[in-house]
Design a protein around this nucleic acid. Structure first.
Length: 593
RNA sequence: CGGGGCGUAGCGUAGCCUGGUAGCGCGUCGGCUUUGGGAGCCGAAGGCCCCCGGUUCAAAUCCGGGCGCCCCGACCA
């Protein structure tokens, strides 16, 4: 491509809306342009980079047996009604009616369509295992788009779906993805870690997320340097100090004026916060079964005073699809007193009492008395009250002890660039996607689903690889291999030489972006740095006098003069060297369940 | 959906408080000069000052409503 013809224009000033470096550079270097909040047009440079990324993804998917397909973006609502997600998923799914007034959805993921394909195509265990994937547009009506391409409404995703006859097969395909994803990110020069994650609306048994560690990330991760434990904070486990065993003492009320917080209470009574019970209240939407309507229930959750509640864990423990903080009047209707609430003596049919697993092991806790200004000493789980659910509800915090090894946990922020889910039979059972096994009995196909957002991956690569001057594209992702800065002025022979090199380069597979514009050297050098191709070739009167063209890598200050008749061979060798080095980045990563 | 900020030429912005001629820089177009790190001079084009309504002799400016964008939070396969 000749820059005089390139549709993208670089900007001198960055639009004020851009905050993150990657967002600024995507705009400034002319890779993307916004259409509205969270939707972008990808201009030629971005399109080429995305194609490189997608081709890497294709290679790795094909290498584990994937077959590429394309499924529709618009789905009939009936399919989503069959699996129930029509009712479970909130407004992030875009819905509309077609001309016949039929409900339709814009696909935000494709489990339903895959399961529908499976029920049409798969008859026998002989057709399994199978792996299908597509690279295609997804639409999610995000409540808040942000960060340029980090979080958008419309995006391109590689989504793959594994189909198996048995759980061992699912495990094998899951593990294959686990490594293939590392290969993909490594080949894109993006450092990532895998963490255990919540299954969220996907359902299923197990999930990992691939995280690019960076403060711009929207997820908080909990990491242990001691044993390598890594989890999204939504599911992370921590080991809190066990309570000392003690015989249960008789419970007694105690006057505790002005102590609506655990800290004030512990201070007044001179007890550690670990000897208190903390109550938190929610209204939970519990999804109804088929034909049933959803039911809103009051949730009274209890954690030890020295811990914080993890809402994701709570929602999972009770099977809630939505949690919101309860209002004061709702708290009072179950007989509880905000600030002095007690799990002892609650009433109400729709009440769910949920306690953290440390509560039954912690004797003689101070809890509220459901009376303003009073608490109860020596409440004991089992004697004074029992819960409908006992589960780990604790939010892991920086500095807590690792549940696996006791080491010190630390937290870090990360951007989720990929995820893998063991789905099981949730969708195939709902849609009747069954096969006949070797004994002739009918069984639902076992599924996994696996996603990578290519646009988010591109912006993370730029976030990771840039400097004050602009982007520093890794060779594997770069839209072109080399920028040729042709300083045409005062040297007619430069134009001719540049044109000849340009043709030869492309004939040898060297992707050259030729800056043939009528612009000053400063403009051309700055744009070359901004766009950030891995190699820069400068051709001007000065370099010709020195015997050829100047070759300089984007990430180095070292340059050298290459004779004109060796330039293309040198570029070809240099590109091959960089590509080879890029491939050696791929290493096997131990699977951590 | 809560909190905050911002909408003025393609981009960056001044003017708004205290109502009265829309201004600057960059970019764009033409001309001459210049040419290895965002050149100089001369000339030109380009504005529903986000929209609707109100106050006023007069609104970019004040008031009300709406929309859009950004940031923080809630949310997020």
């Amino acid at each position: 491509m000749r820059m005089s013809r390139l549709f993208s224009q670089t900007l001198r000033d960055v639009p004020g809306e851009a905050g993150l470096p990657s967002h600024q550079l995507l705009l400034k270097a002319g890779l993307v342009r916004p259409l509205s909040a969270g939707s972008y047009s990808y201009l030629p440079l971005a399109r080429r980079a995305l194609t490189k990324i997608e081709d890497i993804i294709r290679e790795e998917m094909d290498a584990i047996g994937g077959q590429e397909i394309t499924m529709p973006v618009v789905h009939p609502a009936s399919l989503w009604q069959e699996t129930g997600r029509w009712y479970q998923v909130g407004p992030e799914m875009a819905r509309f009616k077609d001309r016949a007034e039929r409900d339709m959805v814009l696909g935000m993921t494709h489990e339903e369509v895959i399961a529908d394909l499976v029920r049409q195509e798969v008859r026998s265990y002989r057709q399994l295992p199978c792996l299908l994937y597509q690279i295609q547009t997804k639409y999610r009506d995000e409540p808040r788009a942000r960060g340029g391409l980090i979080r958008v409404r419309e995006f391109t995703m590689k989504d793959s779906y594994s189909l198996d006859a048995d759980w061992e097969g699912l495990d094998a395909q899951y593990r294959a993805h686990y490594q293939a994803y590392f290969n993909i990110f490594q080949r894109c020069h993006l450092p990532v870690i895998s963490v255990r994650s919540d299954v969220g609306m996907m359902g299923g048994q197990m999930a990992h997320e691939y995280m690019y560690l960076n403060p711009i990330g929207e997820d908080t991760l909990v990491l242990c340097d001691g044993c390598g434990y890594a989890a999204n904070r939504q599911v992370a486990a921590a080991r809190l100090p066990a309570a000392e065993a003690a015989p249960p003492l008789p419970s007694e009320p105690v006057a505790t004026p002005d102590t609506p917080t655990i800290e004030a209470l512990a201070e007044l009574l001179q007890v550690p916060t670990a000897c208190t019970a903390k109550a938190v209240f929610f209204m939970a939407m519990i999804a109804g079964g088929e034909g049933e309507t959803d039911r809103e229930r009051f949730v009274f959750a209890v954690v030890r005073g020295d811990s914080e509640l993890n809402e994701t864990k709570l929602a999972n423990a009770i099977g809630a699809r939505d949690l919101r903080p309860a209002r004061e009047e709702e708290i009072r209707t179950v007989g509880a007193e905000p600030g002095y609430a007690s799990p002892v003596g609650l009433q109400g049919d729709d009440l769910l009492l949920v306690v953290d697993e440390l509560i039954p092991q912690s004797p003689n806790l101070v809890a509220g008395a459901n009376k303003p200004g009073y608490h109860l000493r020596n409440t004991n789980y089992g004697r004074d009250y029992t819960a409908s659910h006992v589960a780990d509800l604790v939010l892991a915090r920086d500095g807590d002890a690792c549940a696996q090894c006791g080491g010190r946990l630390r937290t870090s922020r990360g951007v989720e660039v990929g995820n893998i889910f063991k789905l099981g039979t949730r969708y195939t059972e709902a849609l009747g996607a069954v096969f006949l096994d070797s004994e002739g009995s009918s069984k639902p196909v076992i599924m996994g689903s696996y996603g990578i957002g290519s646009g988010r991956l591109l912006s993370c690569v730029i976030e990771e690889h840039h400097d004050e001057g602009g982007i520093r594209f890794p060779i594997s992702v770069a839209p072109y291999h080399v920028s040729c800065v042709a300083l045409l002025q005062r040297a007619p022979e430069v134009a001719a030489a540049a044109e000849k090199l340009y043709r030869e380069a492309w004939s040898q597979g060297v992707e050259m972006l030729l800056d043939d514009r009528d612009a000053t050297p400063g403009v051309k050098f700055n744009d070359a740095d901004l766009i950030g191709l891995p190699l820069r070739l400068t051709l001007g009167a000065r370099s010709l006098r020195q015997g050829g063209a100047e070759l300089k890598p984007r990430d180095s200050e070292e340059s050298r003069i290459v004779p004109l008749d060796e330039v293309v061979a040198t570029l070809r060798a240099e590109v091959d060297r960089l590509l080879a080095a890029s491939r050696t980045r791929v290493t096997t990563v131990p699977y951590v369940a």
